[in-house]
Design a binder for these strands. Structure first.
Lengths: 120, 120
DNA sequence: ACATAATTTACAACCTTTTTACAAGTTGGA
DNA sequence: TCCAACTTGTAAAAAGGTTGTAAATTATGT
């Protein structure tokens, strides 16, 4: 996300100042928390945001508080992002989450080793 | 809305200097408060106007005042805007309202997976 | 395999908006 | 002035949306 508060790629468009998000030209209705979460993640595109940082900044929770609230909100956000939810919001196990720019899925290349080629 | 105080799209026309509003070529009779509300919203097309801002600017109410007056006026305005009322004036839950340019409703695309096509 | 972490579902509490109805206030004309 | 029509604000009920948590399930790393 740039300093203008805009993010755009092939599928997703985020306009922070106008609080508008769309996926494939389709407007998304996000709740405040969902929006804040996406805003914070996307504003730090590519960076890992630790759970405690997110819980602190968005919820004002201190480290001690044990909750699954963040996870549930991540889930709701991913769901609203539809097909691409999982690819935009990546889980860093044991650490937190990271927003990632859309990457065209790679075509899988089947490589058949000649050494193991079926002998018909 | 431009600096000329004019707004126009496929269905709605707002002329602030002349205090004229029409929907589908049909003149609309708005009360003063309704007009002020529409004027303020449309002048800030695309921007979220928080409740407290609207209540302050249009009613001179301070933050402390708890009232449903704004909501009721929004309702009356939407109603007069007819079919498009809801699409022009968007509710931002817990925040305020936003005027949005008319958007052609998306045609839904029915996609029948070949995998599940009925076999006649 | 184990312990730990994340995902997912469902639900209840809470809060906000919508809607209806009414009464008070205002305006303009007879 | 008085009336009728219109405007406006408020109350209250209904409807709707948001959020956090619990609990079961699934995934991950060692």
């Amino acid at each position: 996300m740039s300093t203008t508060g805009l993010y755009q790629d092939q599928h997703l468009e985020i306009n922070l100042p106008q609080a508008m998000v769309s996926v494939d030209e389709q407007r998304l209705i996000l709740t405040r928390k969902e929006f804040e979460l996406l805003a914070m993640l996307s504003a730090n595109e590519g960076e890992i945001l630790p759970r405690n940082v997110l819980l602190d900044r968005i919820w004002g929770y201190s480290e001690e508080i044990r909750t699954r609230t963040l996870d549930v909100h991540i889930r709701r956000l991913r769901k609203k992002l539809g097909l691409y939810g999982d690819s935009y919001i990546q889980t860093i196990f044991g650490v937190g989450y990271r927003f990632q720019r859309f990457r065209e899925p790679r075509a899988l290349i089947s490589y058949q080793s000649p050494l193991f080629a079926a002998t018909a």
